[in-house]
Design a protein around this nucleic acid. Structure first.
Lengths: 136, 136
DNA sequence: ACTACATTTAACGTGTTGGTTAAGTGACTG
DNA sequence: CAGTCACTTAACCAACACGTTAAATGTAGT
């Protein structure tokens, strides 16, 4: 299961610090392979392969101009990735999560006529909206 | 360079569709390994290892309760990941990018000494704000 | 103590990743 | 047309990821 879908490719590309560094570089300006290699501690073939991975993820595009090959950032796929992550935004806020847990605790307490936690080790949370699909 | 930093671990965890499915499941409610395995087409040991990866990335926490082990989503690291991606938000909009490219082309045309590309086929872009650090 | 259940660890196969160096390709240059 | 520059591809290697089945671990119930 080598994650051949778009989202997997994007996250996979982003998982490598070198590739993130390359993207950061390309956010400022288009660059050649040589230029991208310069600040990095790895060989040019290695960079070339990183660029191939980024291209496969749709995160860059490349155009040949003479003997130079320019890489340009193509940030659109990042949007998709960000949107996937955004689905969990409500869970980022700890207080919200705790409120959620609290509501679940109260609800459970209502069933048991006991206000204290039923099982303190595993307070169950109940999600307010179930608008999640399992996967995409 | 197996990406041992936090951000790499998070993106790496997110790169796997199965792990994203597990996170989607856990967004709704805490669950045991058995519960998480049920809808998946893989064995329980495989799921157990995925959970280990998610835990390593800080995306879930686990508590033992009797013979059950509950997994709970811990979405805070997602915030960090989203924030990293957000740095490229301005590049998502194609029209913005094209305007940027145009401005850079004009600027490059006014410049004579240039060791980077000045090929008209590949207009170099210059970012309006350079508030990017190379890597974190 | 024996048994059942939930989960992890071990051992293994296989594919992928990320690096290397050396050789190949394509475009400009003298 | 030979040489050089910019890059890619090939061949190789070590490490890791992801799956399996079988065995080990830990907890609960009888």
């Amino acid at each position: 299961m080598s994650g051949s879908d778009q989202l997997s490719a994007v996250f996979s590309a982003l998982a490598d610090p070198t590739r993130r560094a390359i993207l950061a570089e390309l956010a400022d300006r288009d660059a050649t392979v040589t230029e991208l290699t310069a600040p990095l501690p790895i060989s040019m073939p290695a960079v070339s392969r990183h660029l191939k991975a980024l291209e496969r993820a749709g995160l860059i595009s490349r155009t040949r101009s003479g003997k130079l090959r320019m890489s340009r950032i193509e940030a659109a796929p990042l949007r998709e990735a960000a949107e996937w992550i955004e689905r969990y935004r409500r869970l980022w806020d700890t207080s919200l999560t705790r409120l959620d847990a609290h509501l679940a605790a109260v609800q459970a307490a209502g069933r048991a006529t006991d206000q204290t936690a039923h099982d303190p080790a595993i307070p169950d949370r109940k999600s307010p909206d179930k608008a999640h699909d399992k996967e995409n």
